[in-house]
Nucleic acid binder design. Structure first.
Lengths: 203, 203
DNA sequence: CAAATTTGATGAACACTGTTCATTAATTCC
DNA sequence: GGAATTAATGAACAGTGTTCATCAAATTTG
């Protein structure tokens, strides 16, 4: 009776096929620049078939968003092994920015795109992001506890650092740094990270 | 021979009519959520008429983006009267964030939305933004000249402050602060601004 | 003033979009 | 092998941006 297992596997493969094609196309042309017919054509199936695996276009987007959140968590996970909270915090920041730079499309999906996620909640994805955010705030809290900062306002410190990192990544990937030559942008980003770390030392 | 003037005026009125309707609709439903037919219906004209005044949908977007840039400049303009560069810088930051909070749709248009502006350049709008950005960097330079900072790396200082402000505004208006209760968000934003100012004092 | 010309607005048409669903083909079960 | 279930199809519907021949009104010309 391996049939039901095989069917399950085939269904999973098909969903994988759709997701991979969709991510590639979203990457290249953006959410609105890609049609269900485009995805169907890419995987050599008819448009209607897509709807046997995802109830609509936004559900494909949600699935990708969830994967992005998981990938981001995995990208940040190694940080948890760093004992010293101050070093952990710095490495968290470095890796957060690194993730955004390396996977602009995924970062976009998670923190910038408005597409569908406006009204419907992508609950499981949100929970994943929440966990990562909690870990971040806890790290800041540990720094506060060990007197790495003069201030004891954990939330504001965490939020301020997050603003900087998010601003840095999103200005970068949404092309709002065109006043600086290509090669200067990366350099500025690195120097700015170093600067915010220095600044953080004196909060 | 006032006919040509009247026609010119009528043409301008029609463009105004279209832009006002478009901005209202974009505000409510986003760029992609609004069709040319929606705009046409709102101003009680046929879809084809729109194309007599704007060559395509993206040109309407560009026109709005330009107006947003002008509005932002006007919002920041009073700052130029502040003699002391440090106070000028702080007030610039406050007003920048204030603009983003008060006009999320316009801020979005200028710094987040990707819609068309990807490949085609909105040159005049870009120039306006560039001028504002130059003014900002010059203010930082003035602070550097007068030894308000230990660091002399004007570009990195300016960029770091911009990252924070942009991150703050864009996290806010793209609803990525839902882990904090409604009333806490505004408070966090204010505290964070105060904190970055304090931090800046010790760069 | 009437005729000719220019202008402004129209809405049908084209190729596209997301989505649904009756029909068909393949597979599984008995 | 025949019945029942499942998977895939592609036509159809209502929407999209955009174009364009057509028509009516306004303007210019004779």
């Amino acid at each position: 009776m391996g049939i039901v297992q095989r069917k399950e596997r085939e269904k999973e493969e098909m969903r994988r096929l759709i997701l991979d094609a969709a991510l590639r196309l979203f990457r290249e042309h953006g959410y609105d620049g890609v049609s269900i017919r485009n995805i169907a054509e890419a995987i050599e199936y008819s448009p209607g078939t897509i709807y046997l695996y995802y109830k609509d276009k936004s559900e494909i987007f949600f699935a990708l968003q969830f994967e992005a959140a998981a990938l981001k968590r995995d990208h940040l996970l190694p940080v948890a092994n760093i004992e010293n909270p101050w070093e952990r915090l710095i490495e968290f920041g470095r890796r957060y920015i690194d993730f955004g730079m390396k996977h602009p499309d995924l970062y976009d999906l998670l923190f910038i795109t408005r597409s569908p996620m406006e009204y419907i909640e992508n609950q499981e994805c949100w929970n994943l992001g929440l966990a990562t955010h909690s870990f971040f705030v806890e790290t800041v809290q540990a720094c506060v506890d060990q007197r790495y900062f003069k201030s004891t306002d954990t939330d504001t410190i965490a939020y301020t650092l997050w603003c900087h990192a998010h601003g840095l990544v999103s200005l970068f990937i949404r092309e709002r740094m065109r006043m600086y030559p290509e090669e200067k942008r990366q350099e500025l980003a690195q120097k700015s990270f170093a600067m915010i770390v220095k600044m953080a030392e004196s909060i």
